[in-house]
Measured scan of single mutants.
Amino acid sequence: MAAGGDHGSPDSYRSPLASRYASPEMCFVFSDRYKFRTWRQLWLWLAEAEQTLGLPITDEQIQEMKSNLENIDFKMAAEEEKRLRHDVMAHVHTFGHCCPKAAGIIHLGATSCYVGDNTDLIILRNALDLLLPKLARVISRLADFAKERASLPTLGFTHFQPAQLTTVGKRCCLWIQDLCMDLQNLKRVRDDLRFRGVKGTTGTQASFLQLFEGDDHKVEQLDKMVTEKAGFKRAFIITGQTYTRKVDIEVLSVLASLGASVHKICTDIRLLANLKEMEEPFEKQQIGSSAMPYKRNPMRSERCCSLARHLMTLVMDPLQTASVQWFERTLDDSANRRICLAEAFLTADTILNTLQNISEGLVVYPKVIERRIRQELPFMATENIIMAMVKAGGSRQDCHEKIRVLSQQAASVVKQEGGDNDLIERIQVDAYFSPIHSQLDHLLDPSSFTGRASQQVQRFLEEEVYPLLKPYESVMKVKAELCL
């Protein structure tokens, strides 16, 4: 049975990233139509530049190519590739079939990587351009969430054990800070992308030097003109047959890092959902379990974690691919890159769409948070109580021993009897502590235990987050809708 299948058929496997999760716009960027249309555009740009620099290419040939950029006979191309065992030459023939007058000058002087690699770089750039505003929107939604809850005390956790208090907004800023680093890295790697350009079979530009009869300047002009037509500021000066596969490492490393950030955020949300302090959106008709109707599973956060793990592992592909590119190139890269580049971007696209949807509907339960604080705060307040007693004339050592005994009794009630923490009640009825009984409410005010959390939130948002989001103001209103 021949390899390949009808990918629109229910009898043929289709990647869930495309069929179930990723956005239509990201799927289109990695589609065959987008790819092969870009090949034709690159052939047109090459012909236009070659004509401008004096090669015998007519206006009629150029116009014929322009008129057929979208006229792609995919069936013919597939048949040609089956016959020739070469995808680029299959599309040269297919393009030439609908451009008979231009057929002889299509791909003039070029090698397969002229269309293959340059198209990949265009796709990487455009895919990054799709991700950047999506990530900015996630940051914006979380920034709104953090600002609104900047002063809401909550129990902090280290080692997932109760620690000092923080605020809900401050905790959210930990998430935002990681995503801001990801946004900066995505922008950097996007701006650092260079075009492969017009380089020939081993990167020496020998074929173009021959076409222009040894004119170095025209060869350099050709490279520059096509690079500018493709919208790049610069091209690699040095290439082998391909652009260095280190570029793929750079791009997928940034995406993998984004995956790590999203995994951490969504894990926190899942843990908070278990504590009943916070939940992701839950639709009115949504079913959490087929057997347990009360369940409210954090399905979206779980999906993000599941896909983020996949995204983090994909960076190993370009690392290994770059390491086995012998001399000017081997074909070890080809099949692998067809999979890992598309999957990385479709996965990143999915987790950003999902995280935006989550961040637009996060639900906080202040009463649950308050109750958990009441359970733990008495123990945390013991040092403040000791200091207040010393100020009232008591002995630190005597007070410490009193607190120690009462704390152990209260802990026994919590752990052995399943009761509430009654340390404060014990202190309130103990005559030894009568000098500070009137101060206990103040000493137990949760806001006095959150330090500068709310001020940190305000400063972080104003100095770091809002300036970073400013270039994306025009796209901030787009909502994230999930079908599944």
Rank of each mutant, 00 (worst) to 15 (best):
D182A: 04
R141M: 13
R309W: 03
D420I: 04
T201I: 02
R20P: 00
F236H: 12
M89V: 05
P471A: 15
L275P: 02
T321I: 09
H107E: 04
L132Q: 14
D192I: 12
T94L: 14
R141Q: 14
E383L: 02
F232M: 09
Q41C: 15
R371I: 00
V324E: 06
A102V: 10
T94C: 11
D117M: 00
K199R: 04
R194I: 05
H310S: 08
Q439K: 10
A77C: 09
S290H: 00
D430P: 05
T313G: 14
T201S: 05
G116D: 15
W175Q: 05
K276G: 08
I427G: 04
I106D: 00
S306V: 02
D182Y: 03
A235M: 13
M299T: 09
G96W: 01
G394M: 06
A344H: 05
M26Y: 00
V364A: 05
E463F: 13
L142A: 06
Q177W: 12
H91L: 07
R245Y: 01
A47M: 05
E250F: 10
K134L: 12
R371M: 03
D120M: 06
S9Q: 13
N126R: 08
E148T: 09
S359Q: 08
F95K: 00
D332Y: 00
S290Y: 03
H91S: 12
G116C: 10
H7S: 12
Q375H: 06
L108F: 11
A2R: 14
V324H: 08
I427K: 04
R149N: 09
Q325C: 14
C399T: 13
I427M: 11
R296T: 11
V478L: 15
V189W: 06
R125D: 05
A110M: 05
V189T: 14
L209T: 11
I339Y: 05
C399I: 11
D87W: 04
E213Q: 13
K218S: 10
A322F: 10
G200A: 14
I139L: 13
G231A: 10
K147W: 11
D120H: 08
R85M: 14
S323C: 12
Y21A: 00
P446I: 05
Q428F: 11
I424D: 07
S290V: 02
A308D: 01
K415H: 04
P435L: 08
G116E: 01
A291T: 02
H159Q: 02
P298G: 02
A103K: 14
V457A: 08
I339N: 10
I176C: 11
L461D: 05
S261V: 04
G200L: 01
G419H: 11
A411F: 04
H91F: 05
A235I: 09
L131F: 11
G156Q: 04
F30W: 11
T321A: 01
F157E: 01
R14W: 15
L444C: 02
L155F: 06
V405P: 11
G231K: 10
V478T: 14
F157S: 07
R190L: 10
L252R: 02
H310E: 03
L469I: 14
A388W: 06
Q285W: 12
D422Q: 06
H107V: 00
D420L: 05
L255W: 03
K75Q: 12
A206V: 09
V254L: 12
H107K: 01
E462I: 10
M476N: 15
I122T: 05
L484V: 08
H437G: 07
G259C: 05
F327S: 06
F145K: 05
D317G: 11
P56T: 11
Y114L: 03
A344L: 03
D215C: 08
L108R: 01
M389Q: 09
M316D: 09
D248G: 01
V138L: 13
S438L: 13
E81A: 00
P153L: 01
N126E: 14
I373D: 00
I424H: 12
R296E: 05
L142V: 08
G393T: 10
D215N: 13
D268C: 09
I72F: 10
S67R: 13
L165C: 05
F449H: 06
F379T: 04
I237T: 08
R40C: 03
G203M: 01
N384H: 13
S140T: 13
I424K: 14
V364I: 08
E64A: 13
Q397P: 05
Y114M: 06
E343P: 10
A260Y: 02
D333M: 01
L174F: 15
V115G: 02
F345Y: 08
S140M: 15
N71K: 10
L341F: 14
R137S: 15
Q458C: 11
L135C: 06
V475F: 14
G418W: 03
K367M: 06
S454P: 12
A136C: 13
Y365W: 15
C399N: 06
I122A: 02
K276Y: 08
V92F: 02
H442L: 11
L307K: 09
M89G: 05
R426P: 00
A388D: 02
L130H: 08
D144V: 15
V457L: 06
V457C: 08
N126V: 09
I249V: 10
D349E: 07
T204V: 12
L258P: 01
H400S: 02
R149F: 10
D268W: 03
R309V: 12
E277T: 04
